[in-house]
């Protein structure tokens, strides 16, 4: 599974992307957030307040209950501020 980070989420995690292989019990976005948060102090800081983070699965906005699995591209970022 490919995980991408943008904006301050990227800065706190300390990298723009990574390949991860979470255990099988990680089945949705919320589960992935909980698992990622335990991977490093940077991840923990980035995901400390999960309500401030948005997610996309395969380049579509996703809710915490959206399923994720091997081969998916999952991105985490703050609420968007373009335009």
């Amino acid at each position: 599974m490919r995980v991408l980070y943008f904006a301050w989420v990227r800065q706190k995690v300390g990298r723009a992307e990574e390949e991860v292989a979470p255990p099988a019990e990680v089945r949705d976005v919320a589960g992935l957030v909980a698992w990622l948060a335990a991977q490093s102090p940077g991840h923990a800081a980035a995901f400390a307040n999960a309500r401030t983070i948005r997610a996309a699965v395969n380049q579509e906005f996703a809710t915490p209950d959206q399923a994720v699995g091997p081969g998916d591209e999952v991105a985490f970022f703050p609420p968007v501020t373009g335009g």
Binding site: F6, A7, W8, A56, A75, F77, P78, V80, G82, G83
Partner: peptide
């Protein structure tokens, strides 16, 4: 819709060296 649905993020840089991410 672009402002709320397209994945862009703005970071502000100031003359005194401060920087901050724009909040939605």
């Amino acid at each position: 819709w672009l402002k709320t649905r397209a994945p862009f993020w703005k970071r502000e840089e100031f003359a005194d060296g401060r920087e901050r991410w724009v909040a939605a």
